[in-house]
Amino acid sequence: MLKIENLTKVYPNGTVALKNVSFEVPDGEFLVVIGLSGSGKSTLLRCINRLIEPTEGKVYWDKTDITAASPTELLHIRQHIGMVFQQFNLVRRSSVMTNVLSGRLGYANPWLSLLNIWPEEEKRRAMQALERVGIPDKAYSRADTLSGGQQQRVGIARALMQEPKFILADEPVASLDPVLSHSILQYLEQLNKEGITVICSLHFLDLVHRYATRVVGLKDGLKVFEGTATEIDRAKFKEIYGEEAQEVRATTV
């Protein structure tokens, strides 16, 4: 269970990205965060694993207060939170294998990891992760030689290496074409069914309907909606996306 209480983030330049956002994520959920660009979705996800330090508010994971964790404790917490990014955030010049293994850094022997030396067991685990996302043959290619969809699969494999309790996915399909979007989200759905909680920000409402078990809507840093996808009617849609918004579908699937 993840519990977010009165989370507020004010950037040094005065931008208020989040205002008093509170909600809970029970284990096993596929929670989707929706909202316009700049509504605070990315900031919210990054405040959970403190890639961005929240200004105020608390994030609890079961009994642990993530916001109060010491730097060392924070590393241990992050170790169990996988993260997937819109721009994949792979190290482009490194091999796919190295990128996947880097998901294991929190577990690894710190000295050997600096030399990029990994035990056989970890390499096997990395191969298994790549097999799960269907690209074991790319293990020794340079990351930037892969297509966008393949790179995002490497991103998921990297998150899998962490044996995560939950996965934060920040617009995981926004840089991909519609067909690939489904294949990536299906991997996340599969992981969700195996018991990993997923918190994912998405743009397209049809994808939200298809995958979300629950939805949180943000507008200008405020939580304006919480409920199931079916509860988003026209009025709610206008409230989240503004009066002029038109619904665009990602796919006709």
Partner: peptide, 14 residues
């Protein structure tokens, strides 16, 4: 991007 991603895995700064 990659810096953020590696930090998110729980890696220390080195």
């Amino acid at each position: 991007g990659p810096i953020e991603a590696i930090r998110a895995t729980g890696a220390n700064w080195v």
